[in-house]
Write a protein that binds this DNA or RNA. Structure first.
Length: 122
DNA sequence: TTGCTGACCGACG
DNA sequence: CCGTCGGCCAGCA
């Protein structure tokens, strides 16, 4: 269990990639799922480094606790994240996810019986 | 090497 | 009710 793939960043990447299309989650939910509830900031920091990864990481599906598109500026433009979400059927108003509660994808619940080992392959 | 910053969250007054 | 502060951990100057 001491591989680079086990690093906090890669764990975040795995969870983010598991987010279904048309759904959103929060930094804190991911951090809490990984066991580090207090390091929600690291999740966002991992997203910043996600650009370094070749894999397609739907970072636009990750918003803050209030459903605000806080990281939209990091997508190369102020409207990129919004349009990406809208293209998935997610309604955005005032840089905020509409029906955020309904669209909220909680890894603690959704991945409770769905271990990360599934995605660890390859 | 040390220290600050950061796409957050929860607690406290 | 709303504003403020601390904490978590990794990357970077």
């Amino acid at each position: 269990m001491s591989s680079d793939s086990d690093s906090f960043f890669y764990k975040v990447y795995d969870v983010v990639r598991l987010i279904p299309e048309g759904r959103v989650t929060s930094y804190g939910a991911i951090a809490e799922y990984l066991g580090t509830r207090g390091s929600a900031r690291m999740v966002g920091w991992a997203m910043n480094a996600s650009h370094h990864e070749t894999w397609n990481i739907p970072a636009h599906r990750v918003v803050n606790r209030m459903g605000l598109l806080t990281g939209k500026q990091h997508f190369g433009g102020p409207n990129v994240m919004k349009q990406l979400l809208e293209s998935e059927g997610i309604e955005i108003a005032n840089d905020k996810v509409v029906n955020f509660v309904e669209l909220f994808w909680d890894p603690r619940t959704e991945l409770r019986d769905y271990a990360l080992r599934v995605t660890r392959n390859a």
